[in-house]
């Protein structure tokens, strides 16, 4: 690919690079240098609030996950309401959305054997893909508000625009609830498609001895499904933070943001969606 820039764009780019280097030089000379152990002290801690009911691991929540989840949901709903009226001759944004949805539809259509369940599975897959992709990119590539939390789970300070947003998919609870939802829906579809008796019989195939293994294998699906996304997003956010600290005056962080945020985030969102479709189709066939 050969880039062709206009004269104006070249000048703007040169000015941007100059400002970037100047800010870097100023940072190196004047900024107070935080110690490495000081900077990474609170990197993996989460805000924890104890609920008045429940016990064990069930009585604590991370309110920041809830806030971010609701914010992302509201943003997606507002954007969807804005694109509600589809025109016959699409403009740029509409054709981007159409090609994205068509790609997901092709994936769904290629792997769901029963024609009645193509549409519902498509809705589920699209919802999952849009939500997970949006929150992955937000948590991997966009600087924003995040929290510095000590090891007891109390908020020490709010970090504004020097770290990434806290992604809801970097919390295992969001991923686990999505994965359990996919598991329940796949079995509900299976019961609806094959009837209760045939569904019950599928647990004892190919041999009644295999029943415990089928149960364990079925329960392992949401765990592997959720842990994969959680590991990639949470680890990606931490890696971006640490590596950006180590090379903070150079161009490197931009590349890292692009790689861990956009590339890994979008690939993991796609993998999550494809796996959800694969689980539903495996339950249906």
């Amino acid at each position: 690919m050969k880039l062709k820039l206009s004269r104006r764009a070249k000048i703007a780019l040169m000015i941007f690079v100059g400002i970037y280097i100047a800010v870097g030089v100023v940072n190196v000379t004047f900024l107070s240098r935080e110690n490495m152990s000081e900077a990474f002290k609170n990197i993996a801690n989460r805000w924890v609030v104890k609920l008045p009911f429940g016990k064990g691991i069930l009585n604590r929540i991370n309110p920041f996950t809830l806030i971010m989840t609701w914010t992302i949901m509201i943003v997606i709903i507002v954007a969807a309401a804005k694109f509600r009226k589809f025109r016959l001759v699409p403009d740029r944004k509409q054709s981007a959305i159409e090609s994205l949805l068509q790609y997901v539809y092709e994936v769904v259509e290629g792997s769901i054997p029963d024609e009645r369940f193509v549409r519902p599975t498509f809705y589920i897959a699209c919802t999952l893909f849009v939500f997970v992709a949006f929150s992955n990119v937000l948590g991997g590539a966009v600087p924003g508000v995040s929290l510095s939390v000590n090891s007891q789970g109390d908020v020490e300070k709010v970090i504004l625009f020097s770290d990434l947003w806290f992604s809801p998919t970097a919390d295992i609870n969001t991923n686990a609830s999505l994965a359990v939802f996919v598991l329940i829906i796949s079995h509900a579809f299976a019961i609806k498609a094959k009837g209760f008796k045939a569904w019950l019989k599928a647990w004892f195939e190919p041999n009644p001895i295999m029943f415990p293994m089928n149960v364990v294998g079925e329960l392992a699906k949401p765990i592997s499904h959720s842990l994969r996304l959680f590991g990639n997003v949470a680890g990606g956010a931490m890696l971006v933070y640490m590596l950006s600290y180590m090379v903070k005056y150079l161009f490197m962080p931009v590349v890292l943001w692009g790689f861990f945020g956009l590339f890994i985030g979008l690939v993991q969102a796609l993998v999550f969606t494809v796996l959800a479709v694969a689980y539903i189709s495996a339950a249906l066939s």
Binding site: G110, A220, S224, L227, L270
Partner: peptide, 22 residues
């Protein structure tokens, strides 16, 4: 299947994850 080329490199990883999660 459009995603078959993309998932080429994930098979080994998927196998490992399946065994470990079980």
């Amino acid at each position: 299947m459009p995603n078959i080329r993309l998932s080429k490199y994930g098979i080994v990883l998927n196998f490992g994850i399946t065994v470990i999660s079980n």
